[in-house]
Design a protein around this nucleic acid. Structure first.
Lengths: 217, 217
DNA sequence: TGTACATCAGTGAACGCGCGTTCACTGATGTAC
DNA sequence: TGTACATCAGTGAACGCGCGTTCACTGATGTAC
């Protein structure tokens, strides 16, 4: 499935895997998607990658290090997706901001394993320095967008952009983790999660003086 | 620590524990608080309760059933706390609603183990019917409060109460799970989570025509 | 271009561990009479 | 009030399992000369 270093169709694997690190990260994603971050084990990842149980230790100190790396990559992709959705505030800040929200949920929906590794893990961010930075980069997209969005408001009723970003992030994460998570047994919702988020964001922004009167659309 | 059925100071335990079911639930809370819902095992709970590893099976079919029971009780306490905070809309709906929000976060902060069992578990609600009902009861408090809160608005711009409740719940849960969780390595916040939630709720309500002009307080 | 050698990446066997689960059992408790 | 008996709650030993981790090892790769 992943290791064909001898060109397309070259199945000869040989003693060296050649791409084990990547294969292990893929395996971790698969296992997390199936059983949650807690269900992941190094031994099973090795088995999935077609390699002996000792092999992963050449690449990762332990299971936490592997999951942390998954989370780092997840934050990286997440940031990319958000940046693309924001599209530097085009066509206008408000619409771009809404696209950002939709992209947030779309990411959680499309990549439950990444999302779980990023937010539902108990690994200490301090122990894996790259993690903190990766998370910060993703959040910075939201923060900058919020700043741009409210930059047009008169100074005297312009709220702190960090606060706005935290509100939007919390609402998005709340909806994502209550209603979007891919696993069984999450609560049912009488409307699409995207609509719920969009309505919430619009109402919120309305109170700031952005986004016209009644719910648009 | 928990089983003294022979009055105060009576340490004699005897063959029968007498209160094992409760002791196991306590042990589960302790273990979940220390290592998360995934770190919990029946064997360790039995050890904590001072009982052989086979004993728990007299009371619970498996670990999931035990955790589900913890979650059910958690939702029960949660609902109680919310009801008390709402206080039937006194002194007025808006202030009672804010108290509700603070109570939400206070519960998550004070009972991280319950909160984790309620929201960070992968047990299927369908498999444990009481769970669904317990969760619904807690949410109903929020829903009824939202309904009362907006009941004074003119009918034409009165939003669906369910939607309002879902927004508030999502925002609260988002803040709780991003910033309040008791375990290590959660993100730092430049302000108390309670203030963040209160500001968010006020802004949101303001757009509905509730809660006067600029942030109060 | 060829060869010697160092380094790298994966092997496979082994270990100790804790868990889930079962089983026949037995001590304690409650109840019928 | 006393006794026989049924039921209940916990025992402890045992099992098979998968995991994490280690170790000396070896096949493959890359590099110096």
């Amino acid at each position: 499935m992943s290791w064909t270093r001898h060109g397309p169709g070259g199945e000869k694997r040989g003693y060296h895997h050649g791409n084990l690190r990547e294969a292990l990260l893929d395996a971790a994603l698969e296992l997390i998607a199936a059983k949650g971050p807690a269900g992941f084990t190094i031994a099973e990842a090795a088995r999935l990658a077609g390699v002996s149980p000792a092999a992963p230790y050449r690449h990762f100190r332990d299971a936490d290090a592997l999951i942390a790396e998954v989370a780092v990559r997840g934050f990286g992709r997440f940031a990319d997706v958000l940046i693309e959705a924001w599209n530097d505030g085009r066509p206008d800040a408000l619409r771009a901001f809404e696209a950002l929200g939709r992209a947030y949920l779309a990411f959680a929906r499309a990549n439950p394993a990444y999302y779980a590794a990023m937010f539902e893990t108990r690994i200490a961010a301090e122990a894996h320095p790259g993690l903190q930075a990766a998370g910060d980069r993703a959040f910075a997209v939201l923060r900058d967008a919020a700043e741009r969005l409210i930059s047009g408001l008169p100074r005297e009723n312009r709220p702190p952009p960090l606060m706005v970003a935290l509100h939007i992030w919390s609402l998005s994460h709340g909806i994502a983790s209550l209603f979007v998570r891919g696993d069984p047994a999450r609560r049912k919702l009488p409307m699409p999660a995207e609509d719920l988020l969009e309505a919430g964001v619009l109402l919120y922004l309305q109170s700031l003086g952005l986004a016209g009167g009644i719910k648009s659309r």
